[in-house]
Design a protein around this nucleic acid. Structure first.
Length: 290
DNA sequence: TTGCAGGGGTCAA
DNA sequence: TTGACCCCTGCA
């Protein structure tokens, strides 16, 4: 699903199938990627600062070695997964999905760090994207570690960094009542070393159950964490937008979240989470159901 | 300038 | 099932 074309002057040119950074980074699955006026994307993959340029066909990763790419990007961008095959499967379902996929054809679901995804989506509740990004950046700048290579961004803070911070320290990031949840969740996970890495190895249903036991994590946030950290692509997070788009395009009437979840599981199957992402991006861009 | 509604939900009563 | 919860933004 990718082909390294060249590696010159420390810049790695790669052809990535089914990828467009505007679709992938702006579809709402991640909060730390930004593009400047020169078209250079900057983001942090795990602890690695990354800059990339996309020319419409190929991606050039600036100042990146082949091994850094193989060790970090292949997993993060889920490059071993054949999105062409998934899209072909979903497109056959109906015209709505076909339109949504042609609209967001370059969405690849990332496999983000579990802890970072957990806290990021805990922050996302009852919140809007610009402000979610603001809170996360503030959290990183106050509690993260420097990133090598001239990056102003810091790494996402570790569990102990947030667990050891007082609530008034955490309030610096202006997260409001969500700071209490961050503090409590970090404290719980900090009690048992390697707890998160152990949890990640459990079956998705068990991970979901564990996530729901943490303060501030409900069904929607738990599903987002599972989906965007790459642990389960069959979950179907239902927020206001997804509810609206499913009601408008499929049910043709208002309905409840449980009916939508059941419908999604039966209708989209193992790729429900990926279908959700195309539909979500489509709904937001086209303002469907408003 | 000020007031109000609403935003990728969750929790407790 | 319902209202409170933090804070920010857009709008009148």
């Amino acid at each position: 699903m990718f082909r390294i074309i060249s590696s010159q002057y420390n810049n790695l040119k790669v052809e990535i199938s089914d990828f467009n950074p505007y679709h992938t980074f702006l579809c709402g699955q991640c909060f730390r990627w930004n593009v400047n006026e020169d078209g250079i994307w900057t983001g942090i993959i795990f602890d690695l600062g990354v800059r990339l340029v996309w020319d419409g066909k190929t991606c050039t990763f600036l100042n990146m070695s082949k091994s850094e790419f193989i060790d970090n990007c292949v997993y993060y961008f889920d490059l071993d997964t054949d999105y062409c095959k998934i899209k072909t499967y979903l497109e056959k379902k109906d015209e709505n999905l076909k339109k949504a996929i042609s609209h967001g054809y370059g969405i690849r679901l990332l496999k983000q760090d579990f802890w970072e995804t957990l806290i990021s989506f805990l922050i996302s509740q009852n919140n809007n994207i610009p402000r979610i990004k603001q809170i996360i950046e503030s959290l990183c700048s106050h509690f993260g570690l420097p990133v090598k290579g001239g990056f102003t961004q810091k790494t996402f803070p570790g569990i102990s960094a947030l667990a050891n911070a007082s609530l008034s320290d955490l309030n610096i990031c202006r997260g409001g009542y969500r700071c209490r949840y961050i503090s409590k969740t970090a404290a719980i996970l900090n009690q048992t070393p390697f707890m998160l890495s152990h949890i990640q190895k459990l079956p998705p249903a068990e991970i979901r159950k564990f996530l729901l036991s943490l303060p501030g994590i409900g069904e929607k946030v738990a599903d987002c964490i599972l989906l965007y950290s790459g642990l389960d692509r069959s979950v179907f997070p239902i927020d206001r937008w997804v509810k609206r788009v499913i009601e408008t395009l499929y049910f043709k009437r208002e309905t409840d979240v449980n009916s939508i979840r059941e419908f999604a599981r039966d209708y989209f199957g193992d790729y429900a989470g990926i279908a959700q992402q195309y539909l979500f991006y489509y709904a937001r861009q086209q303002k469907i159901g408003i």
